[in-house]
Design a protein around this nucleic acid. Structure first.
Lengths: 285, 285
DNA sequence: AATAAGATGTAATTAAATTACACATTAATT
DNA sequence: AATTAATGTGTAATTTAATTACATCTTATT
């Protein structure tokens, strides 16, 4: 509970003078955080120690600490919480909710993701002879995106969203190859098979999936995201964003591992697009 | 712009000592707001006036005022600031930075996105005879993802990442068709052509792209995200995540517009996957 | 009405932040 | 390479703010 709420809630337990202080603060909280204890005391027509005691009653260390808490209460914006979209939400409401839920999911993912595993995954990827990205359904586009990132590194990369192609590719894998299997639930049978086949052919299998899932069992390395999926809409949303960010992280780790000279190579890839684009200076709105 | 972002942005314009202060603050912002100027000076191994000057450089009245601002920046739980990945960052550092930059980008996108335009886009989409998603490069996977969302709605959806197919598809479009062109920069020539062709054939063209770009000029409706792209890595990262979230929003708007009965349909689509998955109860780790 | 418990204010004390100034470092110019 | 100006940084003094200790006043209870 933030300080502002606390003040409102405990208005009754205040003494007469404390009440005066509370009233002044609630009336102009924004002014309060920029006032000295003397100024506030004067506004509330009480003594400075009274203000101080008021602050302590609210479980803060003193007046400056109280101002800090108050400032945080006043900071606009609600914390990013997973807010569910409701039947009668207007565009403003559902837009805000989806942004916030996604941010909340990323925040959760950030806290849950296992850094040492990421580091090992980067290790494995940098040493790969060939990298394959496999996903089905919504995860297929994540695999696609991963391909788009990693092909820039001048490493053989394949990406299939077709089970048959995935299977054939997995059967052909060999030691030194890395197969990345992407699945939020980790319970897609076909993808589990792919992981098994790849492992049987000595490939290293990285799973971007839930711990404790059938797919995770088949993987050499599991990157779990533990995103609370929003089941309201029957569509994967936040989970897939988290997967993408994880791909970004792996790609970044990869480039950092490869060093500066390598980075220039990336620039070249980007610059190669120049011909296909309208130049910034060519175009004037 | 909040203080924390300000610090990150102006890191280069700081002097050596100010830089030390900035580093300490960024490393433990939560501690900073509860420290005295003396404590912070000691942590940063500089003198107290240096800390004070640092605060003033950031347009605050002094140290206490600075702490107030910092407290507000931190109020949303975690500081979501666009932090750039550095050469010598370890896995912990770059993971945190990428998560945070992405969240910061989403936060920026949320504030910039135009709700009425979203609403109109949803309008247009719900009335579409056929919906096409086109993107190239990194935006291709976004288009893919959009297809994966919208095909569930039982509307004809196409998605091509091949210029020739896109072109043919655009030429065949007719009134009532909606073409969604996705491009972060909005300067990809081929995609601009697609938009033009589609418009010439009476399709409604929605652009998920930057305002003030050649592509935007060709569109009926422009959804701009204005995400500060992180150019360090020469790869599109945050921008593409924001695009995906926008797709989520459009899809959500779509289902809400269609009402409850329609939602049951979505459930059916999801349930249809059951056969291809390991049941939750079948599997015990 | 007396007394104790709590509330409030005054004045003293302590702590914190800021300013003024001196010294050091760096960059520029000869 | 030496000199000077400009900028950056720290020390010590000063000012400001916050807290504590204590005295006084209120209010409730007997």
């Amino acid at each position: 509970m933030n300080v502002l709420e606390k003040i409102v809630n405990s208005v009754n337990s205040f003494s007469k003078s404390e009440r005066k202080v509370a009233d002044v603060i609630l009336a102009n909280p924004q002014t309060t955080i920029h006032s000295s204890i003397a100024a506030l005391a004067k506004m509330a027509d009480v003594s400075e120690p009274t203000v101080n005691r008021f602050c302590r009653r609210l479980d803060t260390k003193g007046f400056p600490d109280f101002k800090l808490h108050l400032a945080q209460s006043l900071a606009n914006g609600t914390p990013y919480v997973n807010r569910h979209v409701e039947e009668d939400d207007g565009p403003e409401a559902y837009t805000a909710k989806i942004f916030e839920s996604t941010m909340a999911a990323l925040d959760a993912a950030r806290q849950n993701v296992d850094i040492p595993t990421i580091n090992r995954a980067v290790d494995v990827l940098t040493q790969a002879k060939k990298i394959s990205f496999f996903g089905l359904g919504a995860s297929a586009s994540v695999a696609h995106d991963a391909q788009n990132k990693f092909f820039r590194f001048n490493v053989p990369v394949v990406c299939f969203d077709d089970i048959v192609m995935q299977r054939m590719s997995a059967i052909n894998s060999a030691e030194g190859d890395v197969v990345v299997c992407i699945s939020h639930t980790g319970r897609t049978k076909n993808l589990c098979d792919i992981a098994t086949i790849a492992r049987e052919n000595d490939a290293t299998v990285i799973g971007i999936t839930a711990y404790d899932s059938p797919l995770a069992k088949e993987c050499t390395l599991v990157l779990s995201l533990d995103v609370p999926e929003d089941t309201d809409m029957y569509m994967p949303m936040a989970s897939r964003v988290a997967q993408l960010v994880l791909i970004d992280i792996l790609a970044t780790g990869f480039t950092l591992r490869r060093g500066t000279k390598f980075r220039e190579n990336l620039k070249k890839v980007k610059d190669s697009l120049r011909g296909s684009r309208f130049d910034k200076k060519d175009f004037h709105s």
